[in-house]
Simulated assay, not measured.
Amino acid sequence: MANIVIFPGKYIQGKDELKNISKHTSNLGDKFLIIVSGSGMKRVSCIIEESFSTTDAKLTFEIFNGECSQSEIERLQKVFKENNCNVVIGIGGGKILDAAKAVAYFEDAPIVIAPTVASTDAPCSALAVIYTEEGLFDRYLVLKQNPNIVLVDTKIIVGAPARLLISGMGDALATYFEARACIKSNRKNLSNGYVTLAAEALAKLCYDTLLAEGYKAKLAVDSNVVTKAVENIVEANTLLSGLGFESAGLSAAHAIHNGFTVLKSCHHLYHGEKVAFGTIAQLVLENAPLEELQEVIDFCLSVGLPTNLSDMGIKSINKEDIMKVAEACCVEGETIHNMPFKVTPYDVYSAILTADKLGSL
């Protein structure tokens, strides 16, 4: 079996870079369907129209209805066809970007992804998550390829609440440790190949960047300003973590995140916030050195990520609930089975309670 690493066609990041979108997309087509939220429309439509003002391109803006469902995807496909579009641009958060990816997939068109937050590592991936109209998980849509272009305007990113960038750091925090576990267990990655040296190196660089730049970036984004540290963290959250998870693999931290979704007390948390605590629990699960555990906990404390169950919204620990979380982590097909040893619900239960103690010291 081959070693495989996958990338977006082009990754572009910088302050005010959305102003150059016409230049970056000129080789893809000339009739653009731009999928955006109502609030996003107010913020970015003028920037995009100005960028394309000296070209002959036709722009069709369409407001996203809020859910990446099959019916919404089909509605957007209809708009795409009616306007004879040949390129899809998705601008916004995760569900808008997934809907745009899905429309481009079904219409066999190029896709441009322009995230307005850096809260997860999904923008670069060849994956879309489809939900029901009620917002329940439906299925994963595995795409033919990664996005043609990922365009990240860091001035727009710092305009979002700081908590979103911090959540992205939590998601990125797991990348190296999950990759390390998959390498030890010789598991296939999301492209059905084995891990390359490049993917391993990118995952480690992601972690090193978080430690070096995370706290500085938090301080800057608290004031809604772009600094070099912010640029580095946005790249770690979006590109390094995206390449790392897709080409190296997922293991316990994301499975533990999925387990915590069974508890209503955790529903207020962002994805990366749950993943951050899941990373601490994974390190307990694999009996990582105390120095490494403390390094991860100290990082979480410095930027404001959860380190214990109280931070996760669980103020009174019900051990039956924690076992339900552990059981959900270990269902067949979960990524926790990519760990280099057999994992049982009791193992996860024990790791979660121990992680809570360590993160409460």
Rank of each mutant, 00 (worst) to 15 (best):
G90M: 03
G90Y: 04
I91G: 01
G93A: 02
G93T: 00
G94Y: 01
K95T: 00
I96E: 01
I96C: 01
I96W: 01
D98P: 00
A100P: 06
A100Y: 06
A100T: 06
K101A: 04
K101E: 06
K101F: 02
A102C: 13
A102I: 11
A102L: 09
V103E: 03
V103F: 05
V103A: 05
V103H: 04
F106I: 12
F106Y: 13
D108N: 13
D108L: 14
A109L: 07
A109E: 05
I111Y: 09
I111C: 13
V112G: 02
I113D: 00
V117R: 00
A118G: 07
S119P: 04
T120C: 06
D121M: 05
D121E: 12
D121P: 09
C124P: 13
S125R: 15
S125D: 12
S125E: 12
L127H: 15
L127A: 15
A128E: 03
A128C: 06
A128P: 01
A128W: 01
I130Y: 03
Y131P: 08
T132F: 10
T132P: 08
T132L: 10
E133Y: 14
E134S: 15
E134N: 14
G135A: 07
G135I: 03
F137Q: 07
D138N: 11
D138K: 13
D138Y: 12
D138V: 09
D138A: 12
R139Y: 13
R139N: 10
Y140I: 13
Y140S: 13
Y140G: 06
Y140V: 12
L141D: 05
V142A: 09
V142E: 15
L143R: 12
L143A: 10
K144N: 15
K144M: 07
Q145W: 15
N146A: 14
P147M: 04
N148I: 10
I149D: 03
I149M: 08
V150S: 02
L151W: 02
L151K: 02
L151A: 03
L151Y: 02
L151F: 05
T154R: 00
T154C: 02
I156M: 11
I156P: 06
I157A: 12
I157P: 11
I157W: 14
G159F: 05
G159H: 04
G159T: 05
